[in-house]
Design a binder for these strands. Sequence first.
DNA 1: GTCTTTCGGTTCAATATGTGAACCTTAGCT
DNA 2: AGCTAAGGTTCACATATTGAACCGAAAGAC
Lengths: 260, 260
Amino acid sequence: MSTIGKALTLLDTISRLEKEAGLSDIARHCALDKATTRRFLVELEKHGFVEQDPETRRYRLGGAPVRLARIRETRFPYLSVATPFARELANLTGETVHLSEHAAGRLSTIHVEDSQRAHRVIVDVGSILPFHATASGLGFLAFCPQKEIDTALSMPLQAFTDHTLTDPAALRQTLGETLRRGYSICHHSLETGVVSVAAPIRAPGSPPVGAIAIAAPATRAEKETVEQMGRAVMATARRISERLFGLEQVAADPLARRAG
Amino acid sequence: MSTIGKALTLLDTISRLEKEAGLSDIARHCALDKATTRRFLVELEKHGFVEQDPETRRYRLGGAPVRLARIRETRFPYLSVATPFARELANLTGETVHLSEHAAGRLSTIHVEDSQRAHRVIVDVGSILPFHATASGLGFLAFCPQKEIDTALSMPLQAFTDHTLTDPAALRQTLGETLRRGYSICHHSLETGVVSVAAPIRAPGSPPVGAIAIAAPATRAEKETVEQMGRAVMATARRISERLFGLEQVAADPLARRAG
DNA sequence: GTCTTTCGGTTCAATATGTGAACCTTAGCT
DNA sequence: AGCTAAGGTTCACATATTGAACCGAAAGAC
C-alpha cells in the first residue's frame, strides 16, 4: 500500500476510536511501527487532520475535515437538503432516522435524527454500514450497477447475528426484491431486536450517492408498520433526490447546480 | 516535504478550485508531475477524499471529509453550538456574520450567516483568512501566546489593499489594542469598502480555537456603529466560549464534555 | 480532411523516501 | 530502588516515489 493510503487508513482508524488515543495505542490499532505512526501523525497534524493535546499528548481528529466538508456541502448540499426531510420522517414515524453517504467504497452514517421515544434505536454518526447486513446497505446496493453488487458480495460477509444473511445467492435475491419493491427491509441483521427500512438517494439513471433509513425496535415493527415505514422512507428518498438532482428531465451535473 | 504532506497539499489545492478540474490542471496548480498527481488522486479517491466524474474525468472533493467532520462535530460541537449565536448576531446587526476555525496553522471560514440586506458583504465558506489582514485573524492572534504571534508576523505579509498593515511593529501595536479592547477592528484590509470586527472563541487560559466576525460595508460603519458591533461580537464570542468550554471554574478538557 | 496540440493515463530505471529495530528519557507503579 | 510502558528519536537499509518519455484519444486549427 502507498504511504498516502497508510496515512489515510491511520486517519480512518483514529476516527473510529471512541476518544483521543496515545501514540502506542494508535500504532497498535493500525499495526504500524511506532516511528512510522509518529511521522504520519506529525504530518497529519501539520495539515490539521489530527490534533495533539499539548497536556496529555494524546491525538484526536483535527479541524481540517470541517473546512473540506463545508466546501463539499456548498457544492453538493446533501446534508443540508436531506436533514429536514429526515427530521420530518422521524417526527412522522416516531423512530430513529439516519442518513448515509457513499465514499471510499463504504456507506457511512453522516446524520442521525433520534426518535423521541425512550425505547429507541441508537445509531452513531460516523459508523460504517455493512452492505449485506443493513437496510441502508441493501437499499443502496440494490440500485447499483451489477459490477458494484458483485464487488460487494465477493468480500467476506460477516454474520453479526444469527439472522444475518451471508450467502451471496440469498443476498442477490433480497436485492432483487428490494429493487422491485423500491425499499429494503432488514430484520435483526446487524443487531437483534432492530428492524430497518431504507431507500436510496440517487440521480435518475445513476448509482445512488447514499441512503436514508428508519430503524425501529422489533417490538414496534408489525408487518403493516414496516410496510408503512417502507413507503414513507421511499417517498422521502424520492423527494430528497428530486431536490438534489432536479426532476427527471434535468439530467444535469448535480455539482453544477444549486438545489433550489 | 513528505509524500503525505504533498498529497494533503494537493487535496487543499483541489478544495480551493472553484469547481472540478482535470488532471493536467491540478498538476499545474500543485507544481507536481502529472504521473505523481495521478497516483495521489487515485489514492485519495480510494479513500473518498476526491471523486472523479466518470464522464468528464474531472476530479472534485469527495465525501470522506463529511464523515470525519461529523465525528469531529459530535466530539467538539463547535459549528452546532456557534451557528445559532451567529444567526442571532446577524439578525441583530443586519450584517454578514462568519465563523472561522483554526486548523493547520490557518484560520478557515467554516460558516457564514448572510446579511438580509441587498447591499452586503459576501464571505465564502472554506476561504482562508490571513492573520494580518482580517478582523478574524487579528482577533484570533491577539489572544494567542507570543510565540504564535511571532510565527504569524514572520511570514510574508501580503498587502491586499493600500490600507493593509504589513509592518510587524504596527501590527503588534494593533494586536495590543485588540487585546485590551476585547475585539478587533479591520478597515479595508482585505478588501476596500469593508469594515469588520471580530472576537476569539476560547477556553479561559488557552489559545483560541477560532473567531466570530461581523463584516459590514464601510458606508454603514460609522464609528459608533462599529463600537456597537464590536461589543456585540465580543459578547457573542463569550457566550459561545462558555457553552463550549463551560464557565471559568470548569477547566476540563473541552473534548471530554458535551456542551450543555 | 489532416495536422497539431492537449488531454488523461501508463511505464520503468534512477533515486529520493519511508521504514523499523534499537535507542533515550520520563512517568507511573510495585 | 527497580520495573514497565509511555512518548519520542536515530540511522543504516529497503522500498516506495519520481518524472521523462511514452501511448491513444479527442479537440482545435487550418
